[in-house]
Design a protein around this nucleic acid. Sequence first.
DNA 1: GTCTATACGTTGATAGAC
DNA 2: GTCTATCAACGTATAGAC
Lengths: 209, 209
Amino acid sequence: MSGAGGDPVAYHVSKMTDSVKSATRKPGKRERLVTAATRVLHEQGVEKTTLADIAQAAEIPVGNVYYYFKTKDQLIEAAIGAHAQHLHTMTAILEQHAATPQDRLKALVQGWVDQRDLTVSYGCPTGTLCSELGKRADGLDRVAAGVMGLLIDWVERRFAEMGRADSRELAVALVAAYQGISLLTNTFRDPELMTAEGRRLTRWIDSLA
Amino acid sequence: MSGAGGDPVAYHVSKMTDSVKSATRKPGKRERLVTAATRVLHEQGVEKTTLADIAQAAEIPVGNVYYYFKTKDQLIEAAIGAHAQHLHTMTAILEQHAATPQDRLKALVQGWVDQRDLTVSYGCPTGTLCSELGKRADGLDRVAAGVMGLLIDWVERRFAEMGRADSRELAVALVAAYQGISLLTNTFRDPELMTAEGRRLTRWIDSLA
DNA sequence: GTCTATACGTTGATAGAC
DNA sequence: GTCTATCAACGTATAGAC
């Protein structure tokens, strides 16, 4: 890991601490930087994206980035933290709008299908992140893996609630199916691949109930 | 696309042509370069790999690379061609060692499981390539997609031989499952994920027979 | 054909003015 | 806190000696 604010959760805490320390601080800049980074890193990939790309998207001068983040890796880490936050929000909504474990899982799948156009263009945000960072061994790879773990854990809990003893294996299989079809949807630029696999997975979930 | 020798097949043809043109040519250098590129690009990823990395792995001076390839992209293209060649060889062996479509598909799955240690370290060679190049729109992305297409086509033919009308969808699902579990196996550095999914897929193929 | 030297742009990061 | 100017290192690619 590369310094303080090492994990996605700690990032938000340290941000709050800073806000308390100086009341004059504009919270907009840092947040804009992270939001821009999240989007641009997804669109261009981690290794190909420069700080200039992110700074431009956030409408912030390049050199100024270093006031908010000591290194490029720390900015990437914050962007991964934003993914974790987004995932948390999404699963909370799923739990609110669907009652049974099966319905929640099927709603998750439907969400994937609804996102298919973004997947066609850039692949799954978490998946492409893990794919690139998986070739590293500097700590950032573990941070990305953490987000993927959160997703699998959530799915596993739903299968467990359905009374499945093999809930972990089923969760891994469902997320793997999504990651795989995301890759193919992006590779062949064909949203219909995601739609068709969504139908298959929905039937599969029903068959397990 | 970035010039002559635009597709994986044409590469091998142009190589042959060159060999005919000058009998004194050492075929070792170019081939070593492509072999090294194939390995290093898989290990480090496309965007992070420099020509110096590849040249060093091939034990060739950096500047000399440009005698064999006009640009870095053309070397990458040749490496993708090597993947296509390898895939062709592999499927030929599968057809030789297994008789029925089911057995051939199960042998394919077993091959994936046997490769799990490499997947733990660097992910699926074709998959990580497609993931990175999928963010481009310069032609190389289509070349990588071509290799993935070869694999799906081969699988589809086996399902068709089994009499399945939905052979294309099944082929996409099987390859997606492999790509997805490859990503997770690499993300969590856990070969057991691949082993377990291999068992699941083998049972699934049997259930379709 | 093979290799060395080097040009030229870009990148992450720093120093310091305001 | 914000921004500009700039550095040092590295990347691709070229020129040209042998």
